[in-house]
Design a protein around this nucleic acid. Structure first.
Length: 495
RNA sequence: GGGUCGGUAGCUCAAUCGGUAGAGCAGUGGCCUUUUAAGCCAUUGGUUCCGGGUUCGAGUCCCGGCCGGCCUACCA
């Protein structure tokens, strides 16, 4: 609002209806003059919307009295009677409000309500002539005033920026968004149920770490004043969960936020939710069974289906036994050469150019191959696929395959053309682990976590471990277009 | 970071070659006691993202900036 306007001018402006906020504030002022302050009101509910609607059987015309509360999202005023629709946490319910039933004065006030206001309503249920279960209001009360208008009712809110910055508006007016976040919550709940049912212990490990390891990503750095030392936000859960294996908690999992100081994209948010689980006396084969069962159970219980619609493509089929494919076979198939792994780097770069993918010539040999995997193969793996026998250089935390020392006992589960969950037979030989770490510290952003190596020296049971990007899981389970549609408050540049 | 497209009323969108910035919803006033995007009549509302420039004249063209979408890069 323009602060330079004189009070008189502001008042006259408020009366013309052009400034909706001023009109609503004026309504609030008038109510207060009459001794009503909606911000000090409350309301006892007996039901939520959907519950109330379900009380009336198909063939019934009249039902019991209910009391509900919520936000007005539709207002159809017809002289001496009105229909309104209110939204609560469960859904929507309609109410029919008549002047001759609530009284003349109350009805006059009722007509001054605005879309977005919170009200409580009490009255018996009935069925309208079009069949909609509706509350016949005996009493209503404004319990909180909305001073700003809601976005338009029909198109909802479509402006991405506003959807992300003012998520509350998106949730009020966009049904699909509300449903997607409900689904996300249910998915995470089902993940927990799954692990609890298998006797895993849910734990919490530090987000603030002096050394952030377990992945090769740049961390966010911060400073802890009391100790006058630098800390990093965690980039993975792995190294602390393994310390717990050392400590004897031999089935643990954590669902938590990790932070990576990297770029933003349709599939990357700097803070995202990771699941990691470690099971002693298991290995990557055990993790394969666990991961498949987990996703199938979560999909079945949270969504009620194992077949997932996908915009612009074939549906994803989660039932049955999932495909397994060796990394090397996928590469050889993609490049069309059996001798790919024997080729010198120059020849590999040449072939990459033929495949029309950009590869930095400074990369190591195995990185060139991995570029082929990520740029040519990964996006084609729509149906669940466990990619196995991955080159050892790509992961320093896994055990080397016994029969082939060039690969590790690992799988990468790909679904919907993205990597969803890697899992390993975890490396528990402290000497081999230290060597692998040292090699990475030399060339990557990996930091050496000495305390973790000390823990390993105390002995870690053999174990299988699995990590899963929950946001990416939610993307394909809910058929979302963008990781930001699965995170309530995604990271944006400050406005 | 690079490329590209966009930012117009509270919301969703128009605006021809550079020529008075409009509509629907919402709001305001009125009619209407079973509506379903309720309907009918009347009506208010604009720093066209910001700052420069070209021009008689800029929402429109040019330059710079801000914010965002998509692609791309970085990213186990």
């Amino acid at each position: 609002m323009n602060k330079n306007l004189s009070p008189e001018k502001e008042k006259s402006k408020s009366l013309d209806g052009s400034d909706q906020v001023a009109v609503r504030k004026d309504k609030l002022d008038r109510m207060r003059e009459m001794g009503i302050d909606p911000f000090r009101s409350n309301w006892d509910q007996t039901h939520v919307s959907i519950e109330a609607v379900s009380l009336l059987q198909e063939d019934e015309e009249l039902g019991p009295e209910v009391s509900v509360a919520g936000r007005i999202i539709a207002f159809r005023l017809m002289g001496k009677a009105s229909f309104i629709k209110i939204l609560d946490r469960a859904g929507k319910i309609q109410s029919y409000v008549r002047k001759d039933e609530i009284g003349e004065d109350e009805y006059a006030l009722f007509k001054k309500l605005d879309l977005g206001d919170f009200i409580g309503i009490r009255g018996p249920l009935f069925r309208t002539k079009t069949g909609e279960v509706t509350i016949r209001a005996q009493e209503y009360r404004l319990v909180s005033k909305a001073l700003r208008p809601l976005p338009e009712k029909w198109h909802g809110l479509t402006d991405n920026e506003q959807i992300y910055r003012q998520r509350y508006l998106d949730l009020v007016v966009n049904d699909d968004s509300r449903e997607r976040f409900r689904a996300r919550s249910k998915i995470i709940r089902e993940i927990r149920e799954f692990f609890w049912s298998r006797d895993f212990l849910e734990v919490e490990t530090p987000m603030l770490q002096s050394v952030s390891g377990g992945a090769a990503a740049r961390p966010f750095r911060t400073h802890f004043n009391a100790l006058d030392c630098d800390f990093s936000m965690r980039i993975a859960l792995e190294l602390h969960l393994k310390r717990l294996l050392v400590g004897g908690f031999d089935r643990v999992f954590e669902v938590g936020r990790v932070f990576r100081n990297e770029g933003l994209s349709r599939r990357h948010n700097p803070e995202f939710t990771m699941l990691e689980a470690y099971q002693a006396y298991s290995d990557y084969r055990g993790m394969m069974e666990l991961t498949q069962s987990l996703i199938q159970q979560v999909a079945q219980n949270a969504l009620g289906s194992l077949t997932l619609d996908r915009t612009g493509g074939e549906p994803i089929e989660l039932s049955g036994k999932w495909r397994e494919a060796k990394y090397k076979d996928l590469i050889i198939d993609a490049v069309g050469r059996d001798d790919w792994f024997e080729l010198p780097k120059v020849a590999k770069l040449e072939k990459a150019k033929e495949l029309k993918i950009e590869v930095d010539p400074a990369l190591e040999d195995f990185e060139v191959t991995n570029d082929v995997f990520e740029k040519v193969i990964e996006h084609t793996l729509i149906q669940p696929t466990f990619v196995t026998h991955i080159p050892r250089e790509l992961c320093p935390l896994a055990k080397i395959t016994e029969a082939d020392s060039s690969t590790i006992d690992v799988f990468e589960l790909c679904i919907n053309g993205q990597e969803i969950a890697p899992a390993y037979s975890e490396q528990n030989d402290p000497a081999v682990q230290r060597e692998a770490f040292m090699k990475q510290v030399g060339e990557e952003t990996q930091e050496l976590d000495d305390d973790f190596l000390t823990a390993l020296e105390h002995g870690m049971p053999p174990a299988g471990g699995m990590g899963m990007g929950i946001d990416r899981l939610v993307i394909f389970l809910t058929n979302a277009a963008n990781i930001r549609d699965t995170i309530l408050f995604p990271t944006l540049r400050p406005s």
